[in-house]
Design a protein around this nucleic acid. Structure first.
Lengths: 343, 343
DNA sequence: GACGTGGCATGCAACGTGGCAAGTCACATC
DNA sequence: GATGTGACTTGCCACGTTGCATGCCACGTC
């Protein structure tokens, strides 16, 4: 069924080696020969044998991407961009979903995938650094999102501190005074939320304000429901906020719904900002102010890191790539109404 | 870095073949020898070479899943279940996203993936049957969702006609009289929407009602925004509906938002039903009545089909697996208020 | 002691490909 | 006509694994 080089060679009356040369273009072949061989190739629908190629070359052309959950729009969008970016390098992308658990994150690292993949891009939530270190010592690995600074794996993320800083500063500039932060995740090994909280606090401090711990709300997941719950709690508190900075757009969309349920107007009574710039946020009413990480560049740079390692160009020390982001101001953080805070 | 059988054999003082036998257990090995070899295996951290195994055995242990979009919660959930189901068979699942375009759907079928995968599960939207036929002739293929009845590939789906019938019958039972159907997709090769429309019409006919073409709304995508648009149009029409059956939960969630924007109460003024039973619908307010396909079984049966084909147990003719579904009645289709339809 | 049996170990071959170096051939140059 | 040159082609080998056939040895049986 699957034609091999040998069969093509026999039919074309040339050596196996010449057919190989026609296919790969690695050595000169006379035009007439090339044409004849090519014709047989087409005729027999020759496709190079993946296993044999790998056995010979040591490469599979397969790259893995492990995200916590595909049902999260941010990761789904990101995965799509990785597929495209991989395609540009003629790599095939293998996507896996870890569920945000250490076990899931270890699956491709330790499992059969280990020997199949040329490289791996991982967005870890739960996995302790030791596991990453061990793997990175033997295989090309790129980590997405924040980790401890002395990691050994290459590392791509936005500057979460700066990004959070600019959001809170923007909220202050629209005249808000009590700005809540929703999305702290103390249970995760992942440091992203911690970095954003840091930037948020710094912005408050830079404006001469003291962060109010009552306005920093932890969440168990980054889903809509948690955003809604957080905002309900905030609105029920004795001193409700007049702005909420959610650490993901999903949280912000949940927050938006909760606010609306309570009859709190957005942005007039409550400003809302998110993070990620997912499509749903663009089409929400009001549309969502957010931080837009350059997702395309995250994908591109992450694969570039892998390519460097594969080519042996990788530096011995882990690289730390910071991808640009920008604040996208939309309707949900319009000017506050004059007068007292709601309620 | 990666130890080969040869190295292990040398260090253990046995033949390569014996080491292979220890690893695979395919031939008897004396206990003493086995132990000694095993010790060296552990010591050198031997891992079988994937490529060489495939080259010999012809199997990769890799199975592909192609869905239109991962950002759609239904497909994301489904993909997650496929990952789990594949794991149970010690297969690795390669997920790809086609964008719902013929080109994207052809990528894994025709591209490099073709030779890499032991089998493929495809959820086609745009691909003409010829492509599927050609591929299925050469490789194990399972198609998800409705296709023309005389397809050559194995085929797993729910009974969309029956499922749609039960939804519309339920809406009629709650006292609704003008039931709209949102989600017709005349531009797709995919027949799923057509089957649901058929079931919907049959339910109306069975209740002695004549379907009103003005209440059948086509959509370009299955996203929230399209559901919202459809409902706005329906509510603006001279004779608005008192119930809407959306062909996906995503559409229904969009519809829910649009209804709320217009001040139309759900379910009092307008009943809403969806399809897919995605998580967002369970936590929406009001929670969404929907059809729950047994997604876990879709994954399990689809992989079973592949396994059968791989084992040569596949029948010559295409198999057609119908997976059970159930109607999940929640808040969004509660009893109508007495009195005239809204507006 | 010859023979058969069964348990275990081994060597050979092959899967399809690509690197390497040697080979063939035509043609130009001296 | 011998030699060199360059363009093209080819055979050999190795990658790591496993199927197959064979080899070796000890033991039991006639």
């Amino acid at each position: 069924m699957a034609a091999s080089l040998r069969e093509v060679a026999a039919k074309a009356g040339v050596s196996v080696r010449t057919v190989s040369n026609v296919v790969s273009g690695s050595a000169p072949v006379a035009a007439a020969t090339r044409e004849r061989v090519q014709q047989v190739l087409d005729e027999l629908q020759y496709r190079p044998n993946f296993a044999a190629r790998q056995l010979r070359g040591g490469r599979t052309g397969l790259v893995g991407l492990v995200v916590p959950e595909l049902s999260s729009p941010y990761f789904a969008e990101l995965a799509g961009l990785f597929v495209d970016a991989a395609l540009e390098r003629s790599w095939t992308l293998l996507i896996d979903q870890s569920g945000g658990t250490a076990e899931g994150e270890r699956r491709l690292l330790e499992g059969s995938g280990r020997r199949v993949l040329d490289g791996l891009v991982l967005s870890p939530w739960a996995l302790p650094p030791e596991d990453l270190t061990r793997y990175a010592g033997e295989h090309p690995l790129v980590v997405l999102g924040e980790r401890d600074p002395h990691g050994v794996a290459d590392h791509v993320s936005v500057d979460n501190v700066a990004a959070a800083h600019v959001v809170t500063t923007h909220l202050l500039a629209t005249g808000r005074t009590r700005i809540a932060a929703v999305g702290v995740q103390p249970h995760l090994a992942n440091a992203t939320a911690a970095q954003r909280l840091l930037g948020h606090r710094q912005a408050l401090a830079d404006a001469g304000r003291t962060p109010d711990p009552a306005l920093e709300v932890a969440v168990s997941t980054l889903h809509r429901a948690e955003g809604a719950r957080a905002v309900r709690e905030l609105l029920d508190a004795p001193h409700p906020p007049d702005a909420v900075f959610c650490f993901s757009d999903q949280l912000a969309l949940g927050a938006l719904r909760a606010a609306r349920e309570r009859g709190v107007r957005v942005p007039e009574d409550l400003a809302l900002a998110g993070f990620d710039d997912i499509e749903d946020g663009r089409y929400a009413t009001p549309s969502l102010t957010t931080v837009a990480p350059d997702k395309q560049q995250i994908a591109a740079r992450a694969l570039q890191c892998l390519a460097d390692r594969l080519a042996g160009r990788g530096s011995a020390v882990a690289q730390r790539v910071v991808v640009p982001h920008r604040l996208v101001v939309r309707e949900s953080t319009g000017r506050a109404t004059a007068g007292p805070a709601p309620r």
